[in-house]
Design a protein around this nucleic acid. Sequence first.
DNA 1: TATGAATGAGAGTTCATTCAT
DNA 2: TATGAATGAACTCTCATTCAT
Lengths: 207, 207, 207, 207
Amino acid sequence: MYRTQRKRREYEARRRDILEAAERQFSRHGFFKTSMAEIASAAQFALGTVYRFFRSKEEIYISIVEAKSEELAALLDTQIAMARTASEKLATFIRVKLEYADRNRDFFRIYVSEWSGFEWTIKSAFGERIWRLYVRQVEFVAGLIQEGIRRKEFRKVDPMDAAFALQGMLNSTMYVWILQPKPAGSLVEKSDLIRTVFLRGIEKSFS
Amino acid sequence: MYRTQRKRREYEARRRDILEAAERQFSRHGFFKTSMAEIASAAQFALGTVYRFFRSKEEIYISIVEAKSEELAALLDTQIAMARTASEKLATFIRVKLEYADRNRDFFRIYVSEWSGFEWTIKSAFGERIWRLYVRQVEFVAGLIQEGIRRKEFRKVDPMDAAFALQGMLNSTMYVWILQPKPAGSLVEKSDLIRTVFLRGIEKSFS
Amino acid sequence: MYRTQRKRREYEARRRDILEAAERQFSRHGFFKTSMAEIASAAQFALGTVYRFFRSKEEIYISIVEAKSEELAALLDTQIAMARTASEKLATFIRVKLEYADRNRDFFRIYVSEWSGFEWTIKSAFGERIWRLYVRQVEFVAGLIQEGIRRKEFRKVDPMDAAFALQGMLNSTMYVWILQPKPAGSLVEKSDLIRTVFLRGIEKSFS
Amino acid sequence: MYRTQRKRREYEARRRDILEAAERQFSRHGFFKTSMAEIASAAQFALGTVYRFFRSKEEIYISIVEAKSEELAALLDTQIAMARTASEKLATFIRVKLEYADRNRDFFRIYVSEWSGFEWTIKSAFGERIWRLYVRQVEFVAGLIQEGIRRKEFRKVDPMDAAFALQGMLNSTMYVWILQPKPAGSLVEKSDLIRTVFLRGIEKSFS
DNA sequence: TATGAATGAGAGTTCATTCAT
DNA sequence: TATGAATGAACTCTCATTCAT
């Protein structure tokens, strides 16, 4: 039993090593220009070993996106639970997402791609899984907006449309920051602007 | 001279044919999954002929982006010139860009990629040209915002940050619309939401 | 038109070159141990060039079998047409097939495999095409036997069973001869035995 | 001593388990398309364990052929010893071999390959061992024919040539039967035809 | 100028075999 | 002794680019 446990832990550790190496390579050269040989070598494994953990390159890519999405989702759940009003919840969402991107710069190189220009080049089954993850997050935001409308905090807007717009502001902001070779200052600094613009945009009255 | 002119016109026509064919293919299968043979065949040219007009596949890709960017820039210049206040100018910007995306759905499959997840997979020299095009448009918007601040229409926000945020809202909205297999309704319908949210977000007082 | 004709001829010539090289390699090392790189190199072409002519390795294999099968079938038709009695026709069949094997030793290394141990390792679609070719030849022989029975030359035997048995005698004989590193004497010499044994086996009376 | 004996028995049992599993897999997917992992898993052993019993995949393949050959040889010896005339002995040979194939359909998928199209794909040393097994059986039959000639039962034919021809008839018949997805009737039924044809072919006078 | 056959580096993936546990 | 994770050479196939015609 102990032995099985230990084996399992080691397996998970190796799997994580590969994912981290792949994340690094993908973020540097993109999905298509990163070869399995590069990933293996960056993870300090033989090529064949990588295939013990992942069926294909696409499987690696999607595993990265899924893992990070779940981590972020958990983070959001915890933090947002502590906010009262819908406005506060949205403000928390904005801040936590930007903080997370700040700490996971490599990954967000890919995550931004998640919702743009990537998935139709990948076998549709995979593309779909990623798209679903994205939509889930947007729906989560739409729920917060909906709640705010019900509570008369926000004006009557289409929650999904507004949620997509907010995601766009965040992603665009993140993207700009990510592309800068030497990012000047932290990404979190930008959260003020986005919060102010978006909340003023949908709130009924202003503080 | 006349003959040279005609030749030049024919050359340009062929070049455009190839770009249009490539645009179609790229938008369907993505940059990496589109082969030069496909482009040539879609443009009704021999493979070798394509190479008489473009040095490489990347050259084609960037040429598409440049051509469309210029077309859109020209359109924006004309239309915005007719607006008075900064608010009106931004509203025009939002409307014209969405209208243009509406009419160029194929291209925007790629254009959205322009500012996300694509360019670092392409030789940096090319990536840079595309990035510059993007920044130029953002600077154009930042200029409009700057002007609004000067005229006391807008609150004091960082013009570039605000401009990037607006681009993000637009791109995100476009992206969602583009991904729908059968786009329900026109993209222009969404311009109301974006205009309201963004302008309310940065305006000093509200109409 | 002339140019097209010439191109076509050159295309066919290259195609034949590849088939001949592949035949040589297959017969030496077997289907699975022969790599496309080997075939290309033996045919004096670059690896990619081979793929201009054949979609896959299996496509090459089946093309060889088909080409030879057709050649042999044509030969049999011509020669058998000149025989009168069913016995003479069967004798001709035996002789022509052995002569053909004598002249196409390399190929028959593969052809014998055609009806043994090979096809279930190959994608069934291909296996089927080969199996059909084999059955067609057996049916041809069964037709000759049937005719002999009708003419009262042969005893009443199941024509297909008898035809399979004859093919077996021929293939086995061929196989033995093929496997000998330095074949002692010609294969045709063996046709006397097979003819005598088989015809005595099914004829009503004996000359 | 007892303990050693038991160990030996267990060793042999494991070895046999592996051979049986391999036989099943080979007959289903062919030699090359069967992986060692499949064999191990089918035999309910770990991959590494298989290598404790057999040096290589080829070693397994040849071991199967050898085991079956010996089993068949023993069977033939016993049964043929009970026959008197050479004709009867040959008839017994035909019947026993077909019966054996009937009971060992899986194996004969491979055994037919034994004498066709397979061995030159395998390292020659192995191919030779198999070839020797085959020749030994043919020589056995040739001996029976020789005896028949000496006893004036058969006409003067080349015993080896005739033996190869008989093997061919048998193998071809077996092959056809094996390839049928749902074998109609038993293989033994076909022995009448082969016996009649072959014996009439070589006998001096007819019963 | 236009062509498209030829090229070959490089991709993703498999699997027989080894060896530390 | 039994295990199965690790290995990496070898495979089939793709496609951007070149260049003789």
